[in-house]
Design a protein around this nucleic acid. Structure first.
Ligand SMILES: NC(=O)c1ccc[n+]([C@@H]2O[C@H](COP(=O)([O-])OP(=O)(O)OC[C@H]3O[C@@H](n4cnc5c(N)ncnc54)[C@H](O)[C@@H]3O)[C@@H](O)[C@H]2O)c1
Ligand SMILES: NC(=O)c1ccc[n+]([C@@H]2O[C@H](COP(=O)([O-])OP(=O)(O)OC[C@H]3O[C@@H](n4cnc5c(N)ncnc54)[C@H](O)[C@@H]3O)[C@@H](O)[C@H]2O)c1
Lengths: 231, 231
DNA sequence: CCCACTTTGTGCGTGCTTTCACAAGCGCGT
DNA sequence: ACGCGCTTGTGAAAGCACGCACAAAGTGGG
């Protein structure tokens, strides 16, 4: 019996694909909950809101995990995607800035479901430090380095006002955290090797407004603006 | 083979550019607050965290608003970008699902600063309806159509659990809302002409985990291309 | 075994995005 | 008036991403 180990996955998964894998994963888990054993690229693509060819190409980057004529085994695919995304290990998350948003994040249950564990909540306000939020005591920001070290924090979440965000990011980097999720509306400056992603409500709204305005413009007449005389 | 007629060449700003305009706008407003009158593409690009050639090409889609040898007039550029994004008019926003996240959003001050006004908060829970949150009375979801009509809501924000999100989206669409910002971790199904954007914390964390795992994997081995380096 | 049918995996054309590199344009000093 | 230094705006090239369309591969029935 010729035993071939699973195809060695290529180390170059396109960024666009990486961004969609979590979506596929969620769709697959929904199917799993529903007791579905196998799924075709067509069906899964519909559930994920993408083109089926795109889905197949995305999955092909992980390996050949489908069966022609049948489809993909749901459970196996869940495992493969989870593994590729690094969800088979645990990630400790620290949230800094326990205000409106930080509290919502801390209280959000959907975190722990997938390998992410909130390990610490930190704030600078003496009135907030010591409070108990989501079964955790809010610590003082001064303890950031200590907390990161002792609790093995590898992902930092910034939910402070914009003015403090860069400072907090620097502290995280200094402490060895190389993955940062930033909710503050500011561009963070970090050294190479540190991965920053941002979630920006205001930007999303502005993009929606842009499209809404365009739809409204085109509705009545073609407002062809080329030159404006405003000085 | 029927050759397609020459494309209509509509007034088209690339999607990638639209997504960056809000970032430029914020950087410009920071400069404005600081009293800066003009800025070069190089300096603005640095503030926005992008390549300067990209910035110039992005801005060139709006028109020729720079002065060679000098740069861009900050105030004028703020106006032009705002106008292009549709921020010179007011947008009424309705938030549905006044839980952890909905409350954070409602209490978030950064909304109103730029053309977006929270016009209504809606929930299905009788215990939440009637509460006063951020100077607004939480209304019942049954009144969605009425509220949309009477308050001219044009952007809907969904902050309900995943199970309710599709239903709420349908109500929004039915009521004539064509711009939706979705925080629930589910793929929304909407007709053509409706613009949905999603903000998904869980996906962002998973993408961070993927890169973190890759960095860890490659630590001792072949450090493939990624633009990331360990120091 | 063969054939009809299903579904994957991917080669390829197309269009979008990014980046480089530089001519053209502008202001200032002489 | 003219040249110099600085900066924009944009061709051109390279790199990505998407989706069609189809051969390859598997299933099941006869
Ligand atoms: N609330 C929202 O819905 C929302 C939406 C989009 C963006 N944001 C952004 O998220 C961030 C937080 O928003 P929020 O509404 O929760 O603000 P908030 O003012 O309610 O909370 C901020 C918290 O950060 C703490 N803080 C300030 N400086 C700190 C520091 N140096 N170290 C540690 N903690 C510090 C404050 O004590 C406070 O508890 C802001 O940047 C905001 O622009 C919020
Ligand atoms: N809290 C977070 O930090 C966070 C982060 C990421 C994603 N999310 C997502 O955002 C959504 C909201 O999260 P949350 O933590 O605020 O949840 P939550 O349970 O605190 O709040 C949900 C609210 O929606 C209301 N609701 C339920 N069904 C409704 C319906 N049909 N119409 C109107 N209102 C309805 C509930 O009454 C409740 O008040 C969830 O989908 C969650 O997955 C939340």
């Amino acid at each position: 019996m010729i035993s071939r180990p699973p195809r060695p996955r290529e180390r170059g998964i396109p960024e666009a694909t990486v961004a969609r894998l979590p979506v596929y994963l969620r769709a697959l888990q929904t199917l799993q909950d529903r007791g579905t054993a196998t799924v075709s690229s067509e069906a899964l693509a519909r559930a994920a809101g993408v083109n089926s060819a795109k889905l197949r190409k995305d999955l092909s980057h992980l390996g050949s995990y489908g069966t022609r004529g049948v489809g993909y085994e749901v459970e196996y695919l869940v495992y493969q995607i989870s593994r590729e995304l690094g969800l088979t290990q645990d990630w400790s998350v620290a949230i800094v800035g326990i205000g409106n948003l930080g509290r919502a994040l801390a209280n959000y249950g959907g975190f722990g479901t997938r390998g992410f564990r909130i390990a610490a909540l930190l704030d600078a306000d003496p009135g907030v430090v010591g409070q108990r939020v989501a079964s955790l005591d809010v610590g003082h920001i001064d303890k950031l380095e200590e907390v990161v070290r002792e609790r093995g924090v590898s992902i930092g979440v910034i939910a402070t006002p914009a003015a403090s965000a860069q400072g907090v990011a620097g502290r995280f980097v200094e402490a060895g955290v190389t993955s940062i999720l930033n909710f503050a509306p500011v561009v963070l400056n970090v050294p190479d090797g540190v991965d920053v992603r941002k979630v920006d409500l205001s930007i999303e709204l502005q993009i929606l407004a842009f499209h809404a305005q365009r739809r409204a413009d085109g509705d009545g007449r073609e407002a062809e603006r080329a030159g404006l005389e405003m000085t």
